[in-house]
Design a protein around this nucleic acid. Sequence first.
DNA 1: GCCAACGTTGGC
DNA 2: GCCAACGTTGGC
Length: 160
Amino acid sequence: MNAEHRHSGSPRHWLMKSEPEAFSIDDLKRKRREAWDGVRNYQARNFMRDGMQPGDRVFFYHSNCATPGIVGIAEVATDAYPDPSQFDPASRYFDPASTRGQPRWMLVDVKFVRKLRRTISLDELKGHAALLGMPLLRKGNRLSVMPVAADEWAYILALE
DNA sequence: GCCAACGTTGGC
DNA sequence: GCCAACGTTGGC
């Protein structure tokens, strides 16, 4: 994806993973809005930097927990900007190779939209042939930010 | 807690 | 530029 694809067409859809022990959908609900810091994977960064625009919808996914799955909906609230944590030596996300002049890591703010009425678990998603093309379901996938096709988005919402 | 899968790093 | 070693992710 590149700059010429930005701001064209209808809003895109995304999926963002978070470990609920670190930051859950309930945390987002309480705070209303959050800077999605700590992404240190280039592909995930590129989706935020080059693909996301304010108003895009996001599936909030709980990973590394008892029942991994989609638990809510958020919305992209900003364009991408430098992740402040990369400049903070006290942060676990500090990156000594990054400079303010040439920041390596970008993020967006996301805001809470709603919780799903129930968790749509990873296990359940795997049971739908229509969804098997999702990067989320690819074996060994470790991306924490990924696109969701419009038809997959609608299909999943219809499961709720 | 285990470990497969993957991305990154660094020696050469 | 190769690739082994290492660290991390995340399901189970």
